[in-house]
Design a protein around this nucleic acid. Sequence first.
DNA 1: CTATTGATGGTC
DNA 2: ACCATCAATAGG
Length: 199
Amino acid sequence: MAATASRRSRLPLPFYARPALEVAPDLLGKVLVHQSGRVRRAGRIVETEAYIGEHDLACHASKGRTKRTDVLFGPPGHAYVYLIYGMYDCFNVVVEPEGVAAAVLVRGLEPLEGIGPHHKTNGPGKLCRAMHITRAHNRMDLRGDHLFIEDAPPVPSELIATGPRIGVEYSGEWADKPFRFWIRDNPWVSKVPKRRARR
DNA sequence: CTATTGATGGTC
DNA sequence: ACCATCAATAGG
């Protein structure tokens, strides 16, 4: 195998040990891989959201350190997977050094390997289904051999769009912060609900 | 095409 | 009583 067969390296710890607002745009273009036995599922990250710390009322860590949020306070480069609305899992990457509770939610993937054509990956719940990522992966070290992220060329900043995070209307001023990042015009970015239904 | 709602379960 | 969601349905 000549030069073209170069194997992509996995993202190192220092990549993750940074503020969520830096990691979130930098994750765009990287490749999330779930290797289970001989089955390899992979997708290119095209949409992320930053949850920047305990003071961020949209961040689960703002509830304090509980059994659920404990992983957010742990070392960077680990998975935070939680159940939402009783039926979907959401995949996050823990960032910042240990002790600082922050994470990046992955919201959109462009399928690369091992994802059936009947699966959609434009949304945090859908991409977890397609990648077979579940709460069993919670706390998993992303530098291991099972679930990891491979490096890839950075997406030029002029191709990155930003906007408010989705589904966090309850968080007051934090709901309006432009902490969502996506690759402009990419078809695998999730569809944004116009406004959340009110009663 | 847009708008609304039910499904479904862990956390607090 | 909330939800970091989605698909199906009702309505124009």
